[in-house]
Amino acid sequence: MFVRKLTLVFALAVSGAGIAAAQTPTRIQQFNAWGAYSYQSGKSKVCYVLSVPKEKAPANVDHGDVFFLVSQRPGQNISYEPQVMVGYPLQENSKVIVTVDQKNFTLFTKGNSAWVENAAEEPALVTAMRSGKAMSVSGKSRKGTTTTYSYSLSGISAALKQIESCK
């Protein structure tokens, strides 16, 4: 069941990244809360790490499938791009806040996904995730519901190291 959900999120991530056609991802290895995956896109390889939240709030709403991923797309010169994906449309022109320990990062929203607003801050977010103890994500649905997700950072460094040489 989880693998089917990952295939779905992969398809959504691919469409959000503007990739026209791709193959089903292969799980390279699981590192505690984070899995490392890859797939072939044309002549280049795409790799990413992905995790699901350990807690979702509020508990009384349908969150759908929720993921946090960091992708490497060498063929597009994209290195360690963080992305949040949720199972519902996010409020237009709203912001998603990712907090690693006490440091906040602002993400812009489009549809059911969010990316770092200032691309120059992507490496800082990934660095914070590698050394952090706790990560939370907070956003607002199109209906106006504020949602919060807590993630384990256990295994993130090993998973990122696994996709380091993605080519």
Rank of each mutant, 00 (worst) to 15 (best):
D65I: 10
L125H: 01
Y48R: 05
P123A: 14
A158I: 09
P74C: 12
G111W: 10
M85P: 01
V126E: 02
G64N: 00
E121A: 09
K110I: 05
K140T: 14
R142E: 04
Q40M: 10
V116K: 01
K43G: 03
V66N: 01
A36M: 06
A158E: 15
T7I: 15
S15E: 12
T127K: 15
L50K: 04
G139I: 05
M85S: 03
A128M: 12
G155C: 13
G18W: 07
L90G: 06
S44I: 01
S141Y: 03
R142W: 00
F2N: 10
R27E: 13
S154C: 02
D65H: 09
E92P: 13
Q40S: 14
T146N: 14
Q40R: 13
H63I: 10
K45H: 04
F105K: 01
Q30Y: 01
N104W: 01
A159M: 13
K140W: 05
S113A: 13
T145P: 00
G35C: 10
V100T: 08
T106R: 08
N104C: 00
V9R: 06
S152R: 05
F68K: 00
F68D: 02
I78L: 14
G75W: 01
R142Q: 12
Q83N: 12
S44V: 02
T145I: 13
P82D: 09
S79M: 04
K5E: 11
Y151R: 02
S152L: 12
K54Q: 13
N60L: 10
Q76K: 02
A159E: 01
T147H: 14
S41I: 07
L107C: 00
D101S: 10
S136C: 04
Q23T: 06
P89E: 05
P89C: 06
L90R: 10
N77R: 09
S136P: 00
A36R: 07
K167R: 15
V137D: 02
Y151L: 14
M129S: 06
W115D: 12
G75P: 00
P74H: 07
N93V: 07
G87V: 09
S141R: 14
Y88T: 11
W115Q: 06
N32K: 15
G35K: 02
Y149V: 07
K95M: 11
N32P: 02
R4P: 11
S71A: 10
G155K: 15
A22W: 00
G155W: 15
P58H: 11
A17C: 01
F68V: 15
K56W: 12
A36C: 00
K5S: 13
A128F: 14
K140Q: 15
A17F: 08
A59M: 12
A57M: 10
V70G: 08
R4N: 11
G132R: 11
G75N: 01
I78Y: 09
V52A: 04
T147S: 08
K167C: 06
S44M: 03
K110G: 06
V46D: 07
S94V: 03
W115G: 04
Q83E: 08
L6K: 14
I163P: 03
L12Q: 11
G111Y: 05
G111C: 04
V46C: 09
N118G: 03
S165A: 13
Q76E: 07
Q40E: 12
Y88F: 15
R130E: 15
K56N: 00
I163H: 03
R4S: 07
V98I: 12
